[in-house]
Design a protein around this nucleic acid. Sequence first.
RNA 1: GGGAGUUUAGCUCAGCUGGUUCAGAGCAUCUGCCUUACAAGCAGAGGGUCACUGGUUCGAACCCAGUAACUCCCA
Length: 879
Amino acid sequence: MSIAKTYSPAETEEKWYSYWLKHNFFRSVPDDREPYTIVIPPPNVTGVLHMGHMLNNTIQDVLIRRARMKGKNACWVPGTDHASIATEAKVVAMLKERGISKKDLSREDFLKYAWEWKEKYGGIILDQLKKLGASCDWERTKFTMDEDMSESVIDYFVHLHKKGWIYRGIRMVNWDPQGKTAVSDEEVIRKEVNQKLYYINYKVSGEDGHLTIATTRPETIMADAAICINPNDERYTHLHGKKVFIPLINREIPVILDEYVTMDFGTGCLKVTPAHDLNDYELGQKHKLPVIDILNDDATLNEKAQILVGEDRFIARKKIAVLLEEAGALEKTEDYTSQIGYSERTNAAIEPKLSMQWFCKMPELAKPALQYVLNGDVKLIPEKFVNTYRHWMENVRDWNISRQLWWGQQIPAYYLPTGEFVVAKTKEEALTEAQKIDASLTINDLTQDEDVLDTWFSSGLWPISVFDGVRNPDNAEINYYYPTNDLVTAPEILFFWVARMIMSGHELRGQKPFSNVYLTGIVRDKLGRKMSKSLGNSPDPLDLIAQYGADGVRVGMLLCSPAGNDLMFDEKYCKQGSGFANKIWNAFKLVKGWEVDESLTSNNQTAIAWFGSRFNQALTEIEHDFAQYRLSEALMDTYKLVWDDFCAWYLEMVKPAYQQGVEKQKIDAETYQATVAFFEDILKALHPFMPFLTEELWHDELFGTRAEMDCCIVAQLPVNGEVNTQLIAEIEVIKQVVEKIRNTRDTNQLSPKEALPLAIKANSAIDYSGYKTIIKQLGNVNDLSLVNDAVNGASSFIAGTDEFFITLNIAIDVDAERERLQKEKEYLSGFLRSVDAKLNNERFMANAKPEIIDNELKKKADAEAKLKIVEDSLRGLAG
RNA sequence: GGGAGUUUAGCUCAGCUGGUUCAGAGCAUCUGCCUUACAAGCAGAGGGUCACUGGUUCGAACCCAGUAACUCCCA
């Protein structure tokens, strides 16, 4: 196979992804290997791939591929969640476009449309993930409303109900008037909003005077049940026990006293509207006030409002301001900013609303779930999130699990004609239960609760239900794969999702659902703004892949992703990624271009031994990075291993020197074979990050003929190689020597092509005769000699504690040389002084650990040796 | 209002148990090179009062206290 000038990702990616699929490399079934399991955070069926998914799934894929290459039975379970509110909203919108209204449909018909929608759009993200290279076991793809998954949800509900942890109650809920459902506290996004504060006069009953209240919601005055003042407020003592009239509708309401009212906010008179404000509701309960609900489910005013009936709340607000003005009841308005809640799903302003809901008691579930994290059974990465988690779990409130929707698992509660209810898995079982209450009941007497369960109630079971562990708690799969290993998700859903999985894991299996939770940051643009559709600052991930290749984008994502911190994404990182791919490609081209000449003998043993050691050392470092989930650093360590150590140093050491007139470079067999072997190891180390490029090169004929199943994706990572640390340390000195030779060339404005003679006066134990080849090749040195005395009149430098001399054809600039040496001398003397200061300090000698002192002594000796050399050189220069 | 976090080079970030592997990496910048793998490259170079103030210590980017700015979560 001939090789193209640059790497072109597109066809490669398509080719190898299908190959992997065809050969079932992503497939996992239980066997006797150690399992390594990740369940995907199921994306919404409504979504399309965004940068957050890219980051999240790149990380998961790196982890899963690495585990696979370490010989584990790697299983990555993909799937989607049904996102009840968001999906229902989409379906309602779709129907509206077709001229169909949801309220004209039966539940059954509506669900048919919803499933149709899900089939059409629900798999988009998963398909897009394939472009990224995600090696999920697609045969395991799950959806939270699959029959078995839903059954698991119902089982869990029944289970919790039996324990008495699920109950019904009237509560003030966050009502989404657009979705026409309650949403949980966590699904409300608070935003600062500029509003107006309306000052409204209420006439005092039986007197001429009035009092003034301040409110942001004048349209709710018709629902007022009282006016509340602080009993300590001296301005209003005359109002104690009085009644006032609500303007426009002239309903009489009492003035009540409660210290709850802040005297210095507004006027100190608070209108109490129990039906439409959480705090007012509680105040109303305390003072036994009536609850007057003037809003419909869609937040239009109902007939209880008496006026503006049928108007939307916001339109009513504008209109009532005018009416109040006309009636002379509007004192003034002021600009005012406050926090308003918006539905995460529909972006409608949340309306506090009283309604009957299902709740799940949290304290009993939260307590053990907190322990898993506190005692380290479940590790949060980074650790800082433990505090946040604890704070939540210790202040947890009961969870509203019902949603007034159709798309989702319908609550398995069945009402008797009397209004009593039973909870059971099926209607038949419910009947049996119901008949215990009234033996004469038949199945037609039972009506199932209309509401569905919160989506998190089902995704909270995800790591168990994907292995059918709720319905069949002792099946082979759940026993093998559960607890899973790593979970990769966003901190915003630590409580929503992660905590609930830990709760259900403990409750159902007495076990944690996963050992490590890697929390990624939010992907922001380079200005630090969260990427969002509305801002239009998010690149299309698929465009990025088309432009930079999947490998390039994967590298780009990881380069800028410190664990748990937000990442400032910039396309330039992807560019760096694709540049890296190209570098590897070109290194490959070089090696591939070599022709072996069997008659040549190798003199690259040192280089080969060095890179072998360096490679093993780097593997250990990378392993260490992964153990701490420092993926960004693991990648950077790999990057530098390949680019610097392999390409810039090793290949330059061994590559056949340019020979005039020789068209093909020849190389000895030993070096060739070693280099090819190194390259193969490098492909393995790179594979988790750059699966496509590595797989492509893996199959090149350079490596001989490969069996069909011999693929990089299942190659085993090299382990436990030897590291010759002395050799590595000595090569570091050799690199310095080479750099200084190049520097000498640079400062004397000599061409790199001009070969130079080098004399070495070794003061250290390094045997330079073994490094001659390398120095000659990299430094373009034509004559290398080992000497015992300083060479006069030559340009010199020091590396380590050894001296080096280059005799130049041109006269060296003595003054410049002296200045350079003088500077070095000053630095060394200063350094020596600081070391001596420590060593002469009694308290240092008394307090510092012995190894620290040893180190200082070594530094002293080292500096003294160097200083002596510099001083000698200076003397030589003078003489 | 309560809680948490962040602040190190122009940018994005490392810096573990306080001590020469301590001020580092990648990118960007500057200079010189189209050198037979790669200009998406090669060879060099510059760049930081470790947010600020004080304290502890023989010794502080690191520990403690306070201040400032930014971010997130909860109310």
